[in-house]
Design a binder for these strands. Structure first.
Length: 296
DNA sequence: ATACCGACCTGTCAGC
DNA sequence: TGCTGACAGGTCGGTA
């Protein structure tokens, strides 16, 4: 389901709503699970830990958890930590190698929801974390392409953040690659967070066809592409992400960026710039949408 | 290195 | 109404 803007929206929502809360107990479903770490390790790592903050790294949601016994002292005021204090605690503990991290990848259909305990668990609920505040944090994933894992400090998703990458670095990522530019954009080891929708939208704005070999793209065009990627991602985050089928954020709200898609999902419709019919081709098994006139 | 393919899963929707 | 096939925001591993 989610690419960078959706994960960013979800992580921000979660940070606002559960940072400072404590995970009291964890239930993990008994069927086969979308887990990367063993269920017992996940449960024992999460239980009893306070959530310091929730962030995004690529398409991953990262929960920074208060370290084990002996962790840096965490300043509290009546049990409530302020944002700056949480940041500080997270920083200190990572420096001291004491931060545990809970990593959630939502795959195509994963969702994280906050519910009252009385609310019936949705079908395909795989994990429920009971929080000190009395609420529950639930992970739901029908297709089970999502992945849950835990790390003790230092989770590294690889790749560079597209919103932070310099032009130098961006150009270097694609230099000499014979692979189609669209495939390179989807490669999380290069840029992390760009998925099918935003790859197509970025290429349209940069005027580059998805099948163009990365190595044949001029430096100037790559500069344009970097700008396009950032623009698209920023606009999408501002719109709360794209709700193409049933994506909702941590508060259950839909995103609206799908209304601004210029090529994705618009096969046969008129290009908003030149009026040409938008084409759809399959590239590396993924639908790719482009304007045959505007993109070269 | 690269590129294509199927596999992993369930749900939905269009078409017959 | 119900069946079938195509398709879905992601990744991984195998094979040429």
């Amino acid at each position: 389901m989610p690419e960078l803007p959706e994960v960013e929206t979800i992580a921000r929502g979660l940070d606002q709503r559960v940072a400072g809360d404590t995970i009291e107990s964890v239930w993990i479903g008994s069927k086969k699970q979308p887990l990367k770490s063993p269920a017992g390790v996940i449960a024992s790592t999460l239980e009893g830990k306070r959530i310091l903050r929730v962030q995004r790294a690529g398409k991953h949601i990262v929960f920074d958890l208060e370290g084990p016994a002996g962790a840096a002292p965490v300043p509290t005021k009546k049990g409530k930590m302020y944002h700056a204090e949480r940041r500080q605690a997270a920083f200190q503990q990572r420096r001291d190698g004491q931060t545990a991290q809970w990593i959630v990848h939502l795959g195509m259909t994963g969702r994280m929801v906050i519910s009252e305990p009385s609310a019936e668990a949705a079908k395909h609920t795989h994990l429920i974390a009971k929080l000190g505040s009395g609420r529950e944090l639930r992970f739901i994933d029908p297709r089970m392409f999502g992945k849950l894992s835990v790390y003790s400090g230092g989770f590294d998703p690889g790749g560079v953040e597209p919103l932070e990458v310099s032009e130098e670095r961006f150009v270097a990522l694609f230099r000499g690659r014979k692979t189609p530019i669209k495939s390179a954009l989807l490669n999380q080891k290069l840029l992390r967070g760009v998925g099918n929708i935003y790859a197509d939208e970025s290429l349209f704005r940069a005027g580059i066809r998805p099948r163009r070999r990365a190595a044949t793209i001029t430096r100037e065009q790559l500069g344009k592409l970097r700008t396009a990627v950032k623009e698209v991602l920023r606009e999408a985050i501002a719109a709360g992400g794209s709700s193409v089928s049933n994506y909702v954020d941590a508060d259950g709200d839909e995103g609206f960026f799908q209304l601004q898609h210029r090529v994705y999902g618009r096969e046969g419709e008129a290009c908003l710039v030149c009026g040409c019919a938008i084409r759809r081709v399959v590239l590396g098994g993924r639908s790719s949408h482009y304007c045959p006139n505007c993109q070269k």
